[in-house]
Design a protein around this nucleic acid. Structure first.
Lengths: 189, 189
DNA sequence: AGACAGCCATACAGTTGTGTATGGTTGGGG
DNA sequence: CCCCAACCATACACAACTGTATGGCTGTCT
């Protein structure tokens, strides 16, 4: 007997192919070929490409939000969470993130999905900074900025460590953990 | 008489289409249609798609490097340059940047081009920070981080002002202009 | 005026992908 | 045992795009 596929099999394989070969790999044709089945299987599980893409994006959203909870949310104090979150982000594998982002620039559905994820992530980080007694508006701006830096780093080809060794990253995290008041004092040197 | 096209016409139009419709618009077929000519013209000016893409990337590199020089390099003190550079980056139109970045995630040639531009930009910013008496390694890390934040912001759909009003951006610029020594002192509050 | 270079249209063959229709295989419940 | 549901293969018609071959038009130089 040949082991049969289900929706999940296709979705998993979809994300793998996306991260390795970009959004152009998300075609019924190529996916079937790399799974060594015919497109007949694909069109049994999904109505069409749009249907598949919708399921794939939902699957991705579920995955990335679950991931954060597993990785950092069980730590107790918020400062540790921030450090762990940022370190983890800048050390992790960014291929899927980059591919998804690249796809979003060309596809409305993907763009909607990433926008939701973006907001969730920034909100989460904002709350951590607020818990560190940083004023809410400042916290929100810093959170966005930190998150954007992660995203930008994910979009560049060079590894982050090339520009940003661990100690330098810690220094920058320190900057973002500084109380809002301190800045005005040291502003005009 | 119909006004004839040259290489430059195609390249300009290429960048416009790229920024508005993504890298999928960079096909001989579509470009010709939106220029209201036949593909015959395209294949007269360019050997094939790869040839066109090469010229387009070279044209883009030339454009973006020239742009920075015009915009900020004529200011005198380095602190003003940093502020002007960052403000300008976060206020400007990012569609072309996003489209180019998205293309880079799928295309080796585009990836090479953006890598070169990335390095140039980070180097330029690093030098400005060093001129502000920030230690070279710290300056390099901060420059990269600042640049990544710009890139990340460019990749998100939300306008930057939504999260980052002008005053908040200035506060963050202050953080990155802080002398390296100050941090250790205020670190453990 | 004639010739030539520059520019473009049209037509053709080939490739890659879509979606559908139809029929084949396999495993488990009545 | 048989039948139905789940799953897959094959074949077809269609669309988008590539690159090439060929010929037509136009302005300029001699």
């Amino acid at each position: 007997m040949k082991l049969k596929l289900n929706k999940q099999s296709w979705l998993k394989h979809g994300l793998t192919e996306l991260s390795q070969n970009g959004s152009e790999a998300l075609k019924a044709d190529r996916l079937a070929k790399s799974l060594k089945v015919s497109r007949g299987s694909f069109y049994w599980h999904f109505a069409d490409l749009v249907d598949f893409h919708e399921h794939l994006l939902a699957y991705w959203q579920e995955m990335v939000t679950q991931q954060v909870i597993n990785d950092v949310d069980l730590l107790h104090d918020s400062q540790s969470k921030v450090r762990e979150l940022v370190r983890h982000a800048f050390a992790g594998d960014v291929r899927l993130e980059r591919a998804m982002r690249s796809w979003s620039a060309q596809n409305k559905m993907a763009s909607d999905a990433t926008e939701i994820v973006d907001n969730k992530r920034i909100d989460y980080l904002t709350n951590l900074l607020v818990a560190e007694d940083i004023a809410p508006t400042t916290a929100r701006a810093r959170a966005a900025f930190l998150y954007w830096a992660y995203l930008g780093q994910a979009m560049t080809r060079a590894s982050s460590s090339e520009y940003l060794p661990d100690t330098a990253l810690d220094e920058i995290i320190d900057l973002f953990l500084m109380p809002s008041a301190e800045i005005a004092g040291t502003k005009t040197i």
